[in-house]
Amino acid sequence: MIISEELFEGICDLDDFNLLKFVISSELRLKILFSLYESSKSIKELESEINRKSGNISRGLNELKSCKLITKLPNKLFAISSTGFLVAKNLENLMDNMGSIESNGEFWENHSIKSIPNKFLKELSIFNNSTLVKSTITDFAKPINLYLENIKKSTYICMILPVFSKIFNDAVNDAIIEHDGYLDLVTTKNIYDLSIKSDSDNKIKSLVRDKKIKFYIVDDLPNIFFTVSDQFASLYLFFDDVVFDNSEMLLLEDDLNLNDAYRFYRFFKNEILK
């Protein structure tokens, strides 16, 4: 996999950027760092694993050591430093993210991610195992219908909502009522106002009063319509900064990925409410 500098757009700390760039600019340094990320090793062990001469290995070790990414132990083993561990972890996340983008390349190519901060883009690896659900000529509403089917079975729902849709809102409210569920919702004042105005049956007001819905109102949101529940997680994006696309959806359904999706929601909420 080729990692280009474009992946680091949005990283504000110049020192962090330079360290990452320093490592990925050399295949040898990258291999040594990831090898020591797994466990401490001697030069001979690295030579055998990476299949390079000891002189090359020594040069790579010295280069990493000069940046304090690794350290030499008294027993002649080399180990990753705390700084090196963080750099390797970030690179590992970037590679996972690239895997996510490559596995659903059409979805990412078709949508704008300009409004999504880098710190959230780094979490894209939760969609590595997602399914791309698309509208078809014979079933234009396929993504919407599948979303609504999953919502109807959901109990504990968390949502990032940058767009108003009465269909989605009504389905969520009905699910909460039917299953005695709960909705944790991050949205904007504009979307909140539209939701309240459309609440002709006073379902939302009743659910808020009964502490079944918790609104977190923010001034602005990235263009991510993200939902996670005990049944599924989904992601819709926008064609551009204005036009929402309901014709394509990334879908997650297994329990392990749902746990990661809940973690992403908590991370997003904590960051956006700072």
Rank of each mutant, 00 (worst) to 15 (best):
D139K: 14
G60C: 00
K53D: 09
M95P: 02
S39H: 09
L124H: 12
D96E: 13
I126T: 00
L30S: 14
K114W: 07
N62T: 08
M98Y: 13
I113W: 06
E45P: 00
S125C: 06
K122R: 07
S66P: 03
K122D: 11
L33K: 02
D96I: 13
E45Y: 03
I70D: 04
L124T: 12
S81K: 01
K142R: 11
Y147W: 03
T138S: 11
N97L: 10
L73Y: 00
I101H: 11
N97F: 15
I32Y: 02
L77D: 10
S26E: 01
L77N: 12
S82A: 09
S35F: 00
M95N: 15
S26P: 05
K89R: 10
S115M: 10
F127K: 07
I101E: 13
S35I: 07
K134Y: 01
W108H: 14
N56C: 01
E38A: 15
E27G: 12
L33Q: 02
N90V: 12
H111P: 07
S35L: 06
I24F: 01
E49Y: 02
P117L: 06
F78D: 06
L30R: 15
G55I: 11
G84M: 04
N62P: 05
L73A: 06
W108A: 13
D96T: 14
E92R: 05
T83E: 06
E38Q: 14
G105K: 11
Y37T: 06
L86D: 04
G55A: 11
T138F: 12
K114C: 09
D139C: 15
I70A: 06
T136R: 10
S40Y: 03
E45L: 05
N128L: 15
E38Y: 13
I32H: 00
S130C: 05
P117G: 07
S54M: 08
L124F: 11
K68A: 10
N75W: 04
L28N: 04
G84I: 02
L146I: 07
S135W: 00
L61K: 00
L69K: 01
L124I: 15
I113Q: 09
M95R: 10
I24A: 03
L77C: 10
N128C: 15
A141K: 07
N62W: 01
